[in-house]
Design a protein around this nucleic acid. Sequence first.
DNA 1: CAGTTGATTAACCAAACGGTTAAACCATAC
DNA 2: GTATGGTTTAACCGTTTGGTTAATCAACTG
Lengths: 203, 203
Amino acid sequence: MPDTADTTEARIRQAAQRVFVRDGFDGARMQDIADEAGINKALLHYYFRSKDKLFALIFEEKMGQFLDSIWTVLGSDGSLHDKIRRMVELDITQLSQEPVIPLFIFHEISQNPELVRQKLRDKNADGLFAAFARQVDDEARRGLIRPVDPQQLFANLLSLTVFPFVAKPMLQGFMTLNEPAFAQFIEDRKQQAADFLIHALRP
Amino acid sequence: MPDTADTTEARIRQAAQRVFVRDGFDGARMQDIADEAGINKALLHYYFRSKDKLFALIFEEKMGQFLDSIWTVLGSDGSLHDKIRRMVELDITQLSQEPVIPLFIFHEISQNPELVRQKLRDKNADGLFAAFARQVDDEARRGLIRPVDPQQLFANLLSLTVFPFVAKPMLQGFMTLNEPAFAQFIEDRKQQAADFLIHALRP
DNA sequence: CAGTTGATTAACCAAACGGTTAAACCATAC
DNA sequence: GTATGGTTTAACCGTTTGGTTAATCAACTG
């Protein structure tokens, strides 16, 4: 059941996606979703029983997409430099498509941290991180990078790529960037953030 | 009228602070605030006329505190290395006291970007950033740091300090850190994030 | 064409919500 | 003591909200 099909169910899912991501669970109204989908409100409950059920579906999907872009790169082969370059590039490109996703995810998670724990356990997240940590220590031992705490490096990697999307309006305000200027700032960042990380790792 | 006084008004402000920051504007209930303050709901409207007015007050205050910790360091004297060290240290220390503030601020801003624009204009934020940019270019010309885009550096500075608080549950899940372990991670970060930035700026 | 079945709607419902009102409370001043 | 004026409350109000119901519609089926 891909969202691409123009079934009523798919139209509802797309509408729910837009409204939930834009307004958050608490701010979202079932009526708004119905309007956005161009259908009667009762039909929402016909296809998905409740607001909670519908939200859980959307959140699961968005969270999955977000995590997958991390897995794709981190779980692949290649040197650290390689992974950093590819992960920054991929994440920023993907987030540019839907810039509000991270804030949506982080806000909902903060209201219900269990949402993330289960998902990360399913995906064996600590195993993925353990492998990353081993690679960091290994490359440090071989003198390819300077020794750093893998936890801190992992946090840095995520921070540099994701944070600008979370703090977009504030950064725009600070640096007086209009929409195209901010888009350019993000485009530049694909290379600049990776450069910054790699420079910081020089032995 | 400091919040420290045990007047009814102060108790309401403190309760509103807790509830708004925890649940967000949409998720917060006036009844919850009244309960938290141990008073009747009607008293809320007696002291502050509406939910919006009360929220505006709380948000303004939290936003002000958040921005002040940036101003304190960035607006002071000293080399870039100095500022980086002090800003990372100060921000992380301050955010550790109330770790949910950034997420609260960013979420509310995303719903109403005007909230930040006005405030930043009042505080002459672009002037502050312009001075920062000048210093970055200047120190680069004198060979103290390698040349970097001031916008990107500013974003990096904020990212590395603030993001871990926004993404706390996710980072905890990835690295399997319980509460004390995460506290230690944050404590380490005061030095590690600054080191990372300074290493990345080596010519 | 009558009958069946799933899709869709208008109308409705109870609970929760932000906000109001009128009365009670309580310290102070006369 | 009682009049005064700010403080606090119980009860209430209109609206919005997520959710339900019963009826209608449309497409097959025999």
